[in-house]
């Protein structure tokens, strides 16, 4: 099993900083911005992005957490149910510019579920999508507005994003996985 680091701790920090600057630039400030991260690692990245935007603009940016489990599209195919985690959006998203944050963009199915769920919370002015790693292989017509790093992968590779708060280290690696034929 081959393993290669594609982002180090410092790389992750720089990517978050750059994304925060891009967000502020594109939105002409942070007045109507809210940041919402997808459980679990997206939510942790969202905290950092919001903090960074706050530093740049001297404001406090509201941060929410989204759990998309109940909006997944593979419900009819499962025997066991995924654990439902918390969704916390303690503010109104109507007419806001929502920055949706996740760690990896792959098929686009998670983003589809997140968009459906967010629109059940209100009618944001825009939803912009920020991700740490884009690994390609889209199955839905979805793209990210802010990308930490494009990492070309093959389908029998896996991207592992580690975030200090839960994994003890900030790091992104790509690993070859044995083709067991399980990913059907």
């Amino acid at each position: 099993m081959k393993k290669a680091q594609v982002l180090s701790k410092e790389d992750v920090r720089r990517a978050v900083t750059r994304i925060a600057h891009e967000i502020v630039e594109r939105n002409h400030g942070a007045d109507d911005l809210v940041v919402i991260g997808i459980q679990t690692r997206g939510a942790l990245l969202a905290e950092r992005v919001a903090l960074k935007i706050g530093e740049i603009e001297h404001v406090t940016v509201p941060v929410g957490i989204l759990d998309i489990t109940l909006y997944r599209d593979d419900f009819r195919k499962r025997l066991k149910q995924p654990l439902v985690k918390a969704t916390k959006i303690p503010f109104d998203i109507d007419d806001k510019d929502v920055i949706l944050v996740d760690d990896v963009l792959y098929t686009g199915r998670t983003a589809r579920a997140a968009l459906d769920e967010l629109t059940d919370f209100g009618r944001p002015r825009t939803i912009q999508y920020a991700i740490l790693v884009d690994r390609g292989h889209r199955e839905f017509p979805i793209r990210a507005d802010y990308v930490g790093k494009n990492v070309p992968t093959s389908r029998n590779q896996e991207v592992f994003v580690k975030i200090e708060e839960v994994d003890g280290i900030d790091e992104v690696t790509v690993e070859e996985v044995e083709d067991t034929g399980s990913e059907k």
Binding site: D67, L70, Y71, F75, R76, V84, A86, D120, F121
Partner: peptide, 23 residues
């Protein structure tokens, strides 16, 4: 009981409904 905690939050949403058991 843990799962119910997550579902209680849904009841507070503007649209208190999720598509999970559609169909």
């Amino acid at each position: 009981l843990d799962t119910a905690t997550s579902f209680k939050e849904i009841l507070e949403r503007p649209i208190p409904k999720v598509p999970t058991l559609r169909g």
